[in-house]
Computed example of a mutant assay.
Amino acid sequence: MKSRLTLSALAIALPALFSIGCVSDSAVANYRAQYRVAQEQILDLQAQLEDKDRQIELLRGAKNPNADLQAQLADALADRAALEAAVAKLKDQLSRAGTTPIPVELADELARLAEANPDLMSYNEKTGAIRFRSDVTFGSGKAELREQAAPIVERLAQVLSSPVASQYEVRVVGHTDNVPIKNAFVKQQFGDNWGLSTARAVAVMKGFRSAGIPESRMSVAGYGEFRPVEPNGPRGSEANRRVEIYLVAMPGDEAEAEAAPAAEAAPSNTLAPADTVVPMKSPKPADEGPELYK
């Protein structure tokens, strides 16, 4: 009875959240999708719990308990504990629905991966963005993944290939600081920071592709030095040298579009095809914002 009352309280709380005027339509669709899936799973688990309780009651009421019945009872109690833990986890996810721009289950998995690799990557729960530090992910002036970064990119690809994540497009966006390229060889390879930022985004995309993410789910872009997250100093900024990954609803599918877009966190400009790097025109003035590679 306690479980049903808890679920009823959550059922009242979330519709109240949907009615708040400042929440966007896409966010409301996200909350509803998360709530609906979690609610259905909780109800199913609760039904399994009731069946397990009946089984336990029968086993405990056996007139001539033997070793086999005792073993069955122990297994049933263990199963019941696992079901209760699963219900508790889903209720936690349900209570947090709407606090993240992507499903809570996916957000938790990304957060755990970032916590396990703090020197290489971070995860922003508010925006749903994953960030790789370029100084650790790449060598200076290079666009090939370092040996220590490749396994983490592969592990991230596995998370992004999960059923809960498969409804999202993976947008990979490269950034640099404002230090111009001076090395002649690097300049010949990439031209400028636009080229370097996009080449690094492509390198991460290729890592995802090698790990099994379809190209149809991915796009890449490079912003060069024009989207800093902190002011650049005389030697630029390590924080500005980064590659970010955004998850947005896949286009053309109503069910996916109803799920949980992180569109407000991701770049809004048109992105280049996943394996394309094309020289940029001169950037627009700062008040208009930079173009992407087309």
Rank of each mutant, 00 (worst) to 15 (best):
E254V: 13
A74V: 01
V277L: 09
F185T: 04
R4I: 08
Q55D: 11
A78Y: 02
Q41N: 14
V202A: 04
D53A: 13
P101G: 15
A81P: 08
P103F: 06
A82T: 03
S95Y: 07
A114C: 05
D253A: 12
A257I: 12
A114I: 01
L196K: 02
D53R: 02
S8Y: 05
G195S: 10
S19L: 15
V164P: 08
R4S: 13
L196R: 04
G98R: 02
S162Q: 12
P251A: 15
G61S: 02
G212N: 09
T127L: 08
T270A: 13
V172H: 01
Y246D: 05
Y31N: 13
S268Y: 02
K281R: 15
A71S: 03
N240E: 05
V278Q: 04
E230R: 03
A107Y: 14
V277F: 04
P103T: 06
V220P: 01
D287K: 11
I213M: 10
R155E: 15
V186G: 05
R242L: 08
Q167W: 14
R112D: 09
K52W: 05
Q72S: 03
K206G: 06
A76I: 01
K89V: 07
R36P: 05
A67S: 15
L247G: 09
N117F: 00
P101V: 15
K281F: 10
V278E: 01
I56C: 07
L43W: 13
G236V: 06
R235E: 15
A11R: 14
P251G: 14
V179N: 08
G139S: 02
N232L: 08
V204M: 03
L14F: 08
E57R: 11
V186L: 06
A157Q: 05
G128P: 01
L90H: 11
A85P: 09
D108Q: 11
E215P: 07
K187A: 11
G222Y: 00
A286Y: 08
K89M: 10
D275R: 08
S216K: 11
A27W: 13
G233W: 03
N183Y: 09
R227A: 14
S166L: 11
R217Y: 12
E154M: 12
R200N: 01
E125Q: 05
L271T: 04
A88I: 04
E258C: 11
G139P: 02
A88C: 03
S134V: 00
L17A: 12
P214I: 15
D92N: 12
Q34C: 12
R36W: 10
R241K: 02
L59P: 01
Q41W: 12
R200A: 00
G236K: 08
K89W: 04
T127N: 02
F138T: 00
D25F: 09
D79W: 12
E144I: 06
G21V: 09
Q70T: 03
D108K: 09
D177R: 05
A76E: 07
S122W: 00
Q41S: 14
V136M: 03
A97D: 05
V153G: 10
V278N: 03
D287Q: 10
K284N: 15
A11F: 13
N269L: 09
P15D: 07
V153N: 06
